[in-house]
């Protein structure tokens, strides 16, 4: 079987696999937010950036190739990953103590993994009203990190196109595909893949609240690096 080196460790891969896919299958963690093993890569969060022959590359979009020497767990790359994570925190309104997703949130868990103790930059405090128009689900746009997983899930799995990313650059934002812009005016349903794919606290089931106590939530029990490949096991 073909293989490449990840931080000096041999990782085998199948033809057509990306570096990140092969790494996750081998139980190796490369920090990432917009990647999900069930979806085609988006390559936008850049947290999975690795270094190959002195050049940086997103490991979720870079195809694995025989003999590549890939660096990931280096002080330099982790410092840049931390900066990207801090920028995500200041761009939105991420108030963990009052978020239902706290403890189950991949942004928070990634920040823990990278040792983030403050967001470093000045906060934007954007004004993003909550959409509670749907009877079963609410959208809290304050926490959106533009990973596009709900866009991909709704389009590619649910065949509905409920979500989209609109605008460009710093003005990019999540929109709902209805004339009113409200989730309640779409055919979004609780059984949709898009209802369960959000890595942060945007797409939330109503009436659930803080149902799991602190200490028993996903990332209270497992560091994100040990959790990522559980998504593969769920699939098989």
């Amino acid at each position: 079987m073909k293989s490449f080196l990840l931080d000096g460790e041999r990782i085998s891969f199948e033809e057509g696999e990306t570096i990140l896919q092969a790494a996750i299958r081998a139980g190796k963690y490369i920090p990432h937010l917009c990647f999900h093993p069930e979806f085609r890569p988006h390559g936008s969060c850049k947290l999975c950036t690795v270094k190959i022959a002195g050049r940086q590359s997103a490991s979720c979009t870079r195809l694995a190739a025989e003999g590549l020497e890939v660096e990931s767990e280096t002080a330099e790359l982790n410092a840049e990953r931390l900066l990207l994570t801090q920028m995500l925190f200041v761009e939105g309104n991420h108030f963990c103590p009052s978020c239902e997703k706290s403890g189950d949130c991949q942004l928070q868990a990634t920040a823990y993994h990278l040792g983030m103790t403050s967001a470093h930059f000045d906060h934007f405090y954007p004004n993003r009203p909550v959409d509670a128009s749907h009877p079963e689900y609410l959208l809290d746009f304050n926490r959106c990190i533009l990973c596009s997983l709900c866009v991909r899930a709704s389009r590619d799995v649910d065949n509905k196109n409920v979500f989209a990313l609109a605008g460009r650059g710093i003005a990019t934002h999540l929109v709902v595909n209805a004339r009113s812009g409200k989730l309640g005016d779409t055919d979004f349903a609780a059984t949709d893949k898009a209802a369960s794919v959000c890595p942060v606290g945007v797409i939330l089931k109503k009436g659930k609240g803080f149902s799991v106590p602190i200490g028993s939530r996903t990332f209270d029990k497992k560091e994100i690096g040990e959790w990522v490949d559980t998504r593969l096991k769920e699939r098989t």
């Binding site: 967001a119 906060h123 405090y125 004004n127």
Partner: peptide
């Protein structure tokens, strides 16, 4: 030293900021 969520990102009081 900034101690706690409010000292670090404004916390609950900062949720008035968009208004």
């Amino acid at each position: 030293v900034a101690v706690g969520a409010c000292a670090i990102n404004g916390g609950l009081p900062a949720q008035r900021n968009p208004i």
